[in-house]
Design a protein around this nucleic acid. Structure first.
Length: 682
DNA sequence: GTTGGGAGAATTTTT
DNA sequence: TTCTCCCAAC
């Protein structure tokens, strides 16, 4: 028996051990939200609720995994619970029970790259003057907005149209419809489709809905402030029968409105669920008082429905957050390295230090400086491990091995061969009758005969990997599948494209993948499924890492995490808040984001404010400290200026006079960027 | 009609 | 660096 009253505080305990019925837990930053949720699950299991009848929805895979791990420590027997992101749960539902609404279990999931490719094709096929047409990214945004907002495409387009001229609206609609059709033809879903169809499943299939409503006795939702309309309706429907729905969140931490999140969901929850209990977690266990003082000022003028001041549990003489004024990005990077090194010398492990930034590209300089100074760090980069070309090539091969109808994979694989481009690959696919079973010698021969002369040598290498596949599949030796593909074909291909050590590094990645597949329960099929829904953050957690390293992530990805030391670079207008949000006048979300950033820190917080920033063309221009920094009363921070006069390396830019007071820099192009690479090893 | 080299542009945030 | 688009060569 767990003594809940002993391990939790009063409010946490009340939430964890509450009686059945709807419940809203308002959990401010650092108040033990995860702890409460974990113990709620433990409580339910201990009370005798079968674990497989509990559904725990989280925002990231990492949160799901962490929560399960922690729950396992508290009470055995939680392993059976249904937990995961909305996307992964919808995926599971649809594969199992999707047939009644016309979803075939073998559907593939399109990642962002696939989506762009597909939309690009649709534009090419439907638009004469591609140059004058909207970009595919914009069309995808329209489609996504429509999906996440539960609106018709026409309405979304109409809304955009009032703001800016879109051009030929009917053509835009036509292309978007073609895109939807192409997805249907491929038997593929993008991320949004998973949610849309997951909800459709509950709405349209009475039997499935009733079965699932009966099955799930308890539905728990984490980070509720970041759910969108679809997700709120999804959980409402699932919980309609037993009425045991517990949602946890904090509207101050809603940072995904750009993806359709509605923090109104959290405020309206009590109205949607009459009789709902509302509990509040207010005592902050995470941060020292001076950090909370800053956090509270950030949000002091934001309207809120409930009392929101963070009250520190940790008191005592903690240092104030530090504000470093630095000259530019380079000076900032050096300052950060110095700081990290100094902390380490004072006994703070690298592992306790996190550098959180607004957007990936601003991390490049810091990465380089850290690398130069041999500070080990781990970064969750912009491009995920599973989004890198070489990994996607391998995955295409694997997917095709187990799913002959995977058109995108086939195309990708064929386009690796010299002399085979999009057109030829499509021709082959058609000639093969819309499927290719590489494990079938007849089909391999058919493709080999069609193959153009230039592609033949490469194909014969690839073919041998396909030929060996059935044996490996039968023996459940997925590792060998990878090894064969790499050794017979892909290694040579990589070496043709890259420098030897670059190729070698990428091959190492593939070896890592092979190991991961081998360790995935459910084998290759489960792995491919998982990968499609995985972010680099999750991928990295599986990879081996040096024990002690600093952490670099975006603020978005840092949500829900904490570190003793947090360093926030680039607190200047146009970076944080971003230029885009300043233009759109959408500072509220940036403010919440800054609030999230500040409240990640437990003991020490450092904020860096450079005075100038580089432009794309190599010039420099002055920047203002971020509004959010300017708002912080002087006495709450300890300010330090790390420069005296402009450094000699800056001279007026010769060729430009468009901006007054712009500084120019002689030159010095930045070297090899590592922004898009992950640094697992090293 | 297709491929693939080469020049030029570009950088919010994520499942 | 990476991605995208355009155009010359096949």
């Amino acid at each position: 028996m767990i003594d809940f009253a002993r391990v939790l505080n009063q409010e946490q305990c009340a939430a964890a051990t509450a009686a059945d019925g709807p419940m809203l837990v308002l959990a401010a930053a650092g108040t033990g939200k995860t702890r409460t949720l974990v113990h709620r699950v433990a409580y339910l299991v201990e009370k005798g609720v079968p674990s497989e009848r509990i559904l725990l929805l989280t925002f990231t895979n990492r949160a799901a995994r962490e929560m399960l791990e922690r729950a396992r420590l508290v009470v055995p027997g939680v392993d059976g619970i249904w937990s995961g992101t909305f996307h992964s749960i919808c995926n599971k539902f649809l594969r199992r029970w999707g047939l009644p609404i016309g979803v075939k279990p073998g559907f593939t999931i399109l990642d962002e790259d696939d989506q762009k490719k597909l939309m690009g094709q649709c534009i090419k096929e439907n638009v004469k003057d591609v140059k004058d047409f909207q970009k595919k990214e914009f069309l995808l945004k329209l489609v996504s907005d429509a999906a996440n907002g539960g609106e018709s495409l026409e309405r979304v387009v109409g809304r955009y149209q009032t703001k800016t001229a879109l051009g030929d609206v009917s053509l835009i609609l036509q292309v978007c419809r073609a895109y939807a059709q192409r997805k249907a033809d491929l038997g593929a879903m993008d991320f949004d489709d998973l949610l849309v169809n997951g909800l459709r499943l509950l709405r349209e299939s009475d039997r499935t809905r009733e079965f699932l409503q009966e099955h799930f006795m308890h539905v728990l939702v984490d980070e509720y402030q970041d759910t969108n309309g679809l997700q709120a309706e999804f959980t409402d429907l699932l919980a309609a029968k037993h009425r045991n729905i517990m949602v946890v969140g904090d509207d101050f931490q809603c940072i995904y409105t750009w993806r359709g999140a509605k923090f109104e969901n959290i405020r309206e929850f009590p109205r949607r669920w009459p009789g709902c209990k509302v509990l509040k977690l207010e005592r902050n266990y995470r941060s020292v008082a001076p950090i909370l003082d800053v956090a509270n000022t950030v949000m002091k003028d934001v309207p809120h429905e409930f009392e929101k001041t963070l009250r520190p549990f940790r008191t005592g003489g903690a240092p104030k957050p530090r504000l470093y004024n630095v000259w530019d990005g380079r000076a900032q990077a050096e300052a950060v390295v110095k700081l990290v090194t100094a902390l380490r010398e004072n006994g703070v492990p690298y592992d306790d230090i996190a550098i959180l930034y607004r957007s990936h590209y601003t991390s490049i300089e810091i990465q380089m400086a850290l690398t130069r100074n041999r500070v080990p760090f781990q970064i969750t980069s912009g491009v995920g491990v599973f989004e890198q070309m070489h990994v996607k090539d391998l995955l295409a091969f694997l997917r095709l091995c187990i799913n002959p109808r995977a058109e995108m994979s086939f195309m990708r694989l064929m386009e690796l061969l010299p002399g085979v481009g999009e057109g030829t690959a499509r021709k082959y696919w058609k000639a093969l009758g819309g499927s290719f079973d590489g494990t079938n010698p007849m089909e391999r021969m058919q493709l080999g005969e069609m193959m153009c002369a230039k592609g033949k040598p490469g194909w014969s290498q690839m073919e041998s990997a396909f030929a060996a596949a059935p044996g490996h599949l039968a023996a459940r030796d997925d590792r060998r599948l990878v090894i064969d593909f790499v050794e017979s074909f892909y290694s040579a291909h990589l070496h043709r494209q890259f420098e030897p050590d670059e190729a070698g590094q990428r091959l190492d990645d593939l070896g890592e993948i092979a190991a991961q597949i081998a360790s995935t329960q459910g084998g290759l099929g489960a792995f491919l499924d998982e990968v499609a829904l995985m972010t680099n953050l999750d991928a990295r957690a599986r990879a081996s890492l040096p024990a002690d390293h600093a952490h670099l992530t975006t603020v978005h990805q840092a949500k829900g995490m904490e570190w003793p030391v947090v360093i926030l670079p680039w607190l200047v207008d146009t970076v944080f808040p971003s230029a885009r949000s300043i233009e759109d006048g959408n500072l509220a979300e940036e403010r919440r984001l800054f609030y999230v950033a500040v409240t990640r820190a437990k003991d020490r917080l450092y904020i860096c404010v450079p005075r100038s920033k580089k432009t794309a063309d190599g010039g420099q221009y002055p920047v203002e400290p971020s509004v959010f920094v300017r708002e912080i009363p002087k006495e709450l921070v300890e300010e330090q200026t790390l420069y005296s006069a402009p450094e000699p390396s800056y001279s007026r830019r010769r060729w430009d006079d468009e901006e007054d007071g712009a500084w120019g820099r002689a030159s010095s192009r930045r070297g090899g960027s590592t922004a898009y690479k992950t640094h697992w090893r090293r």
